[in-house]
Write a protein that binds this DNA or RNA. Sequence first.
DNA 1: CGTCTTTGACCCGCGC
DNA 2: GCGCGGGTCAAAGACG
Length: 303
Amino acid sequence: MDSTRVDTSLGINLNINPSHKIDETPKREFQGHDCAGERKASMNQEPDPLIEELHRIKTENRKLTEMLTFVCENYTALQSHLMELMQKNSENEITKLGKRKAGEEYNYGNVSGINGDIDSSCSDGGSCKRPREIKTNISRVYVRTSPSDMMSLIVRDGYQWRKYGQKVTRDNPSPRAYYKCSFAPSCPVKKKVQRSVEDPSVLVAIYEGDHNHPQTTQAVVSVGVNPGSVPSSNSIISSTSSPTATLDFIKPGLCSNAKMASPEIDSPKLQQFLVEQMASSLSRNPSFTAAIAAAYYGKDFRT
DNA sequence: CGTCTTTGACCCGCGC
DNA sequence: GCGCGGGTCAAAGACG
Ligand SMILES: [Zn+2]
């Protein structure tokens, strides 16, 4: 039950309640052990208030768990966004010469959707054929695998995929696998999975498009508590202090779809508020970006 | 028997 | 035009 392991050691000021009620966070209930004295005091009386309080604590605990799940979800999404920004910065600095060499080291990131596809209209007058429109949003996810499935090239993300190709690429000794969603053609999502050049225990999954259906296997959006149903437990590399925080796979693009899966978490407006707040808090901290980069490379230089 | 994986062939864009 | 590299197709096989 260490659902508190994803602690916000980054100093993120998470105002879950917009009305600054953060002071009455039920830390006391969360600790659980220190309630002994309190319970002993109330043991002399009838057990009704005790049960009542227990119930309340249970509810609160569940609420907190949900909130934690949600926060981690947003955290992952934000991280991907940060990767995107960092990649853009790197590309600007590196310019374009030696783009193949640059691609080896700086191709992490997340080109999520809104790529400025300006000038999609045919300015040329006549044939406006654009066979490869990039309207699908592409997201890149790094997944650490256990050394046992070193050659499986499988990322368990809750969806069902059908492999339709595998190629050996130029810059990477490990092959790249091509997957389509099993719901194709109704669901046009594709993904590419390849091992990282730097760290062969890290899989790089590139997703294109959004699913228009729920996940086929549940028990994926679990935080901290791993139900053990996933044998090849993949874990996203996402933390600054510990090299691998086992946030099970959450795709940033799914946040819009996942709101039907978690309808009780208030409103999407609050979600956006949370994301924005986290973004501002994180982007204000310059060492965070460096730490993220370090975490993505599996190294651990703490300033 | 249906579904998924494997794997060589094929296609297409790009640089020369 | 040609070669190269990345992406996809589809026949054959594996698997349940
Ligand atoms: Zn799908």
